[in-house]
Design a protein around this nucleic acid. Structure first.
Lengths: 218, 218
DNA sequence: GCAAATTAATGATTTATTCAAG
DNA sequence: CTTGAATAAATCATTAATTTGC
């Protein structure tokens, strides 16, 4: 298969750094972390997909050197844990903000919210981001379900008053949950939360495989 | 017009003297809540949103039409930036990587790719991220269209061979791991790309509007 | 009463759509 | 029209809560 090629073939010294330490990619070591093509170095075929594709050579999950647990199939335990587990306070605040009208906070706001929520427990900006995304989506679903299941019952909801208040806040745009003709605001997201230190690298030699591949498929 | 309500207005009385358990408890039905090993529930600091609030000198967004872009987190428009305009080299490399099998690079990889591509022109990590997202999606569409359109005249055999080859590395078929539990790789995303102006921010006392409005709904 | 098995929620990712710059 | 950017919908995966069998 001619396709793959070593990166350096194209770009000389492009990614001269190391590939390993994937575990790093996952801050929280999630138990299972399949892939890890590190085993490559196979030789000829640069890129060797086999290594990606289910590296059967080593059922060794998590090739990373990190061997903290492994033999103890215990519940994750301690550090870092896995996913964010919000405290009541955090949730309360987030809901307050949500009810207040916040739906898609921008980066700056997320930063601040996270910073504040951090007082109640570990949290990162992305958690806040995801929370809003999920909450918004799920409220929407719920509402849809309810509207179907129940005839439109007059929703007096005091939320209305709040809404009103908030409505004032910016250029009268506040969409009221579903009537806005989809106006998009540009919000830039996407980025890393884990601190990738770009510092390192530099010495690699250039054979690094940059193709980790991830059969995410579905 | 603007005004924008201040969070603390809500917060007042909400958090200052109220045990979160009350209103919070009812809201989010996290099925019961045992946790709380932290036990700090009593010591909760009142979340002082004021700290978030930045000296918004910027009620600017509202009244004057003069600025829609600059400091407001509204439409992106970074300072002097429009959108990323990839150079030939950048695209060439990205495509190479794509063909090589890369579909969803993780944060670390993105950083590195961006760093390298930066040699050919301005670029940010998010551009790389988006590029892969879009390219992947569009290749998929194209393929779908073609498969339909070509069904009539299946004369291209070479497509088959290519497919075979490619099947190994890119296209969505890659995952073959029948037995591998395949856990999702941990990809951490979400973060700011635009530089949140860490600049000002510090004086925090003003009142950042936490409810910026975001008409994005649909 | 407790711990494995089940179920309900919900955090985290990926995919599909949509918008708009050029 | 092409495609960078962004959001929403759909999924996946993991943990909390509940149920069940002893």
């Amino acid at each position: 298969m001619g396709i793959s090629m070593k990166v350096h073939q194209f770009a000389r010294g492009f990614w001269e750094h190391e590939p390993p330490s994937l575990s790093l990619g996952c801050k929280r070591l999630r138990p299972l972390a399949p892939k890890l093509n590190t085993t490559n170095s196979d030789s000829i075929t640069p890129f060797d997909l086999k290594s990606f594709i289910r590296p059967n050579s080593g059922p060794r999950k998590l090739g990373s050197d990190d061997d903290k647990r492994d033999s103890t199939p215990q519940v994750e335990t301690h550090p870092g844990g896995t996913r964010w587990n919000p405290t009541q306070e955090q949730i309360g605040i987030l809901e307050m903000l949500y009810r207040g009208g916040m739906r898609t906070p921008n980066a700056q706001q997320i930063e601040q919210i996270a910073a504040q929520l951090g007082r109640y427990g570990k949290i990162e900006g992305k958690n806040v981001f995801y929370w809003f995304q999920n909450h918004k989506a799920r409220e929407r679903q719920k509402q849809k379900r309810d509207s179907l299941g129940l005839s439109h019952s007059p929703r007096s909801t005091q939320a209305a008053s709040i809404t009103t208040t908030i409505t004032l806040d910016s250029r009268g745009e506040v969409e009221r949950e579903g009537d806005s003709p989809y106006k998009r605001k540009c919000r830039s997201w996407v980025l890393e939360s884990l601190e990738l230190e770009e510092g390192r690298e530099g010495e690699g030699d250039g054979t690094l495989e940059l193709f980790p591949l991830h059969p995410e498929g579905r």
